[in-house]
Design a protein around this nucleic acid. Structure first.
Lengths: 217, 217
DNA sequence: CCCTCAATCCCACAAAAGGGGGAGGCAGCC
DNA sequence: GGCTGCCTCCCCCTTTTGTGGGATTGAGGG
């Protein structure tokens, strides 16, 4: 039952707007090397069909009637189906970007993406890349940069204290830290007390949270 | 003192290999809209000159004699100079990628990047994007996805145990956890023992690392 | 009814961590 | 020469954790 050339990248579409959906389907089938193997108006019907589709790439809208595209991505990942998911949406707010990536999306394109770049994005994700609209990529990258409230406090730490804190946050015991730095256990304790003073914390876990910038508490 | 057209993107290069450095300089000056305003063989001399360069984009090698490109990026960010930093290196290991991004890099390109895409990357980062080689982008995106080895172990935890683990990972003491859950201290201890058993860890920090999916150790 | 399991609590002991104090050596600075 | 900051180590003590054994209740299933 071959309807399409076998080597083409099998693309599925989940998009509730009929016009957009058909436009995408048309674009994909009109692109050499790409084949649209399914187009769905909601996440539920897509998930129901996902198994037999054997799609390589899924273009997923986020704002769908019923289940959201993000939840759909999560479900798809939970299944055995190893599709590459590219979110295709009008929203570019941090919340949805990071939720999507956590849910397993490999790419994130805005609907303003020109057709040629959309096609390029599909081949890119299939090649092992992660297509993202420019502004999206910047936000993703920016998320790695510590907002630096911690850097201020951490800036007061001496070199040695930083070393100790680093090891401390990795879970090493005092004696293990002492061994690694080749100093005495009491010295480690002194450093740690000074670190706690400067960071205004009272335990290893709190210090780790501050060090890693994770505002856990 | 205008040596170059004023509207060109001012690009600085930090790269210890002379041949590569000159090649990059040549490429940039030969690209319309780009101007190489400085090329340095080490981080120190670049940082010393950074103020007067007024570069918009810095192409930064990582493996340099003396200070590493990552440290240089950190320093540059610490200065007031608001240059956009694009790492350009042969290394693509996770450690260096994420350290670079944390240090403030806005892009990460491998040296295998073709000249045309390199030029494109410079304009992209100047436009507000974050150029990354395909494999790099995928790693960055993948870092958001909980590797889910933890989910498997975590799946065995009971509802109560999850609650305790969550509080435990936030640094609360046993008695504080007990108070919040309105149970006895001994019960908390029992839960924690069971959690440690199931997660196969022996300390709070290890449990936290597994819970947060952060492979700290 | 018996069994399992989650959830609760208890005792005891050892190891680790946290908090107070003090102190010496050494480098750099005024 | 004094002063300061960093690194180093020591004492004593309390609190918190980790580990070993238990036990009881209640819900749910075979």
């Amino acid at each position: 039952m071959l309807e399409k050339p076998d080597r083409a990248i099998r693309v599925a579409i989940v998009e509730d707007n009929t016009g957009v959906r058909e436009g995408l389907s048309f674009l994909i089938d009109g692109s050499p090397g790409l084949s649209c193997v399914g187009a769905f108006g909601d996440a539920e019907s897509f998930l129901a069909a996902a198994d037999r589709l054997r799609s390589n790439v899924v273009l997923m809208d986020i704002d769908l009637p019923g289940m959201s595209g993000i939840d759909a991505a999560r479900r798809l990942k939970a299944q055995q189906t190893p599709s590459l998911i590219v979110m295709l949406t009008v929203y570019g707010d941090d919340e949805q970007i990071f939720e999507s990536l956590r849910a397993g999306a490999c790419g994130y394109l805005l609907k303003t993406t020109p057709p040629a770049q959309l096609v390029d994005g599909i081949t890119t994700v299939y090649r092992g890349g992660s297509p993202m609209s420019e502004a999206i990529a910047r936000r993703v990258v920016a998320s790695f940069q510590r907002p630096t409230p911690k850097d201020l406090a951490l800036a007061d730490l001496t070199r040695r204290e930083r070393e100790v804190l680093d090891l401390l946050s990795r879970g090493f015991r005092y004696r293990e830290i002492a061994a690694q730095l080749d100093i005495g256990l009491e010295t480690v304790r002194t450093h740690i007390r000074n670190i706690y003073d400067k960071l205004e914390v009272r335990s290893r876990t709190e210090a780790t949270a501050k060090y890693l910038g994770g505002d856990l508490v």
